[in-house]
Write a protein that binds this DNA or RNA. Structure first.
Lengths: 125, 125
DNA sequence: GTAGCAGTTGGAGTGAACTTTAAGTCAAGA
DNA sequence: TCTTGACTTAAAGTTCACTCCAACTGCTAC
């Protein structure tokens, strides 16, 4: 797969794909004779994983660390597990926070609806 | 309340509080004779709201817009309601995505636990 | 063979959200 | 009175995560 195809498939710009590669979030991608990137299925799987983790808020730095550990082989299994567990915990916290904020917004919107219906109220903010 | 007190109370740096004020996320805070900020309870309520919305991911720009509308009075009630509804929708989407990612991480961690237990497996990444 | 297009590189630029700096003011305590 | 420390301002600097640019190369179609 070319960079354009991967870019389209995952909705990630070619620049970003090259950037991720440079940062080590994707392993060095094989090139054709002419030096053009040729992504394998495995590359794609990893790109999809990176996209998912990035959109969940894992930093480039953390993902870099994870793949660095991965490169060091089996002896880093535990370290990688711990890294994922740490990130999972942070995500869980953000998840709960988000849930609360959603409730708060729902309430605020309902207050707005009442204010709009009663035609003359104003809110504190 | 001084800026130091508010900063401590909400775990927001004094710099950030001044920045928020400059950007219109907090109304102009009253000063003492000497020009030192003196936050009211209402300022604090608003700061708490801003903090909550910021940590949920609402941008400075959106919050700025919201408070600008607020300054224009009752006639912007609907617009503000719509703004909040739009942000709520985006949050909801991120919430669902986060839920999926949490599940995915749980699964991945369980795979790691198995690999660690069986002592000789390696994973794809 | 040359136009055009998709790709390559390294490096510079961007936008969001702070964060730091420089230079100063003010109030309280020794 | 002097020092200390928390505050003030405007403006420059930082960080993160891209995003764009210039200059180039290599296929493909005419």
């Amino acid at each position: 797969m070319t960079i354009a195809e991967v870019s389209k498939k995952y909705q990630i710009s070619a620049d970003t794909l090259r950037y991720y590669e440079k940062e080590g979030l994707i392993p060095y991608v094989n090139r054709t004779e002419g030096g053009v990137r040729n992504y394998t299925e495995e590359d794609c799987t990893r790109i999809e994983f990176v996209k998912c983790m990035r959109s969940a808020g894992l930093s480039i730095e953390v993902l870099k660390k994870y793949f660095e550990l991965f490169k060091c082989g089996k002896r880093t299994l535990k370290a990688r597990r711990e890294l994922l567990a740490t990130e999972r915990k942070a995500l869980q916290e953000r998840f709960v926070e988000l849930q609360d904020t959603l409730k708060r917004l729902d309430y605020k919107i309902s207050v707005y609806d009442k204010a709009i219906a009663s035609k003359d109220k104003e809110l504190k903010f």
